[in-house]
Design a protein around this nucleic acid. Structure first.
Lengths: 247, 247
DNA sequence: CTGCGATGTTGCGTTATTCGCAACGTGCGT
DNA sequence: ACGCACGTTGCGAATAACGCAACATCGCAG
């Protein structure tokens, strides 16, 4: 494993927090500033960092370009986009698209609600596996063996009183999710937020993504969130249909 | 400069094109696959790459997370977001937000039109300095010295018959842009696309970003694009006002 | 205007790190 | 069941990264 690359990534992570000077970065990494300088020069060459007139380093446009390029290449994201935009517009709520990859569930798209209350989520972040609706939808489609393996490996952090507390409970819920074709998060992650999620399938019928609507209960009560289900399911089915027809 | 980091970035760039196997990547870099493997392991540790069940490498969620984190930190992007979303909804056209940094103009946000014809642009990409409306708006606010320096350094690739051909012509146009408070791109970059752009200012009055509307002429004729100006200018002013009031 | 301090940059010798090789696993397809 | 292609590991050689120390550069204050 490459020490140099690891350090470069730590630099990027640090710059993700905000602009930094050379010395600050050297401090954080615990290495000589000469070393940091050279790493930064290489990163700058690749437009991953950028420094302003005051010698402050920022993350650069190359990073953004690469990220949005990769995101656009995800076919499912493109086909989902118009449907999710419409869903967000129709419900006025926050809409997420998430995918399962390599043992984790990651948000790959987000449409903000126009409510003043914004959600703490972001494209690229991991969704908790035991207390989010999207994760339940995605896990519910895994082959039983992997599902059990994943369920056993989760750390069941109890965020709220409703948070699922262990593998047995989770596996039972996943059964139900698989059967009913949608999942919910009834204040299991954030005490005042409820979500519903639905599966998006490709031609083969495998679940390739999950779409969700998240609503703070100051905006809608739990029962009202469930009333959004038909719209969500329709959107998810429409995306699946497009994905099936598209290729 | 760090060879290792440079190689790691080339790996990422290559993966940006699509999934690759270890051997393919070693081929492209022209190094032994062992070397590539170790770089990839470090990148994987930082969640910048991810490999699927078939040992194919993809760009990973860490990259997306970092990118969207950095993008969200740009205050101007956040304050602009609702206004640009509305502008895009009201006009039905593609809306861009761009900023000037270190000698280049970069797109930092984009709202797609719902027209079937999509634009080839993406967050993080550089805008051509001599033939885009956003670049003109941003360059027009630079101090005269830097403006001349930048104008002299541009390579004036003639994309269409209307493309500005040299520094003198560009500087003259920038004068006009500064005076009238908006810029246009009348089929200067793509033969069938017209754009208008307007400046977004912060408290100090400096131009910190440019907002634009881009329209293929199969959708609207040039004169009709100019009719969008009032809406664009209103949006830009609203963003500026928010930026001024916000902090 | 001049000196001082802080911060970024360069040259260079040392050595830790990376590199490539070759041998070894492993899984898929035939 | 066999073979092949592809990924992985151990190890010595050597390169590329490291830190030091001296040198610029800039901003600020006396």
């Amino acid at each position: 494993m490459s020490q140099t690359v690891t350090r470069a990534l730590r630099l990027l992570a640090e710059l993700g927090e905000g602009e930094r000077s050379l010395d600050q970065l050297a401090e954080v990494l615990g290495v000589h500033k000469t070393t940091v300088l050279r790493l930064l020069q290489s990163l700058e060459e690749g437009r991953f960092v950028h420094r302003d007139a005051n010698h402050r380093y920022h993350l650069g446009a190359g990073l953004f370009a690469l990220s949005s390029l990769a995101l656009e290449q995800r076919g499912i994201r493109r086909t989902a986009a118009p449907h999710l935009a419409e869903l967000s517009a129709a419900t006025g709520q926050t809409v997420h698209l998430a995918a399962y990859e390599g043992g984790e569930v990651v948000y790959i798209d987000k449409y903000d609600s126009r409510q003043p209350v914004r959600m703490y989520s972001r494209i690229g972040l991991r969704a908790s596996l035991h207390c989010t609706a999207v994760a339940k939808v995605l896990l519910a489609d895994l082959p039983p063996a992997e599902r059990r393996r994943v369920a056993a490996a989760i750390e069941y952090t109890p965020y709220t009183a409703n948070t699922i507390a262990g593998p047995k409970q989770l596996l039972a819920e996943l059964e139900q999710v698989a059967a009913q074709g949608w999942a919910q998060d009834h204040a299991e992650h954030e005490p005042f937020i409820n979500c519903v999620a639905a599966p998006v399938r490709d031609v083969s019928g495998r679940v390739v993504a999950a779409a969700s609507v998240s609503v703070p209960d100051v905006v809608l009560r739990y029962e009202q969130v469930l009333e959004l289900l038909p719209q969500l399911l329709a959107a998810a089915r429409a995306i699946s249909a497009d994905a099936g027809a598209a290729r």
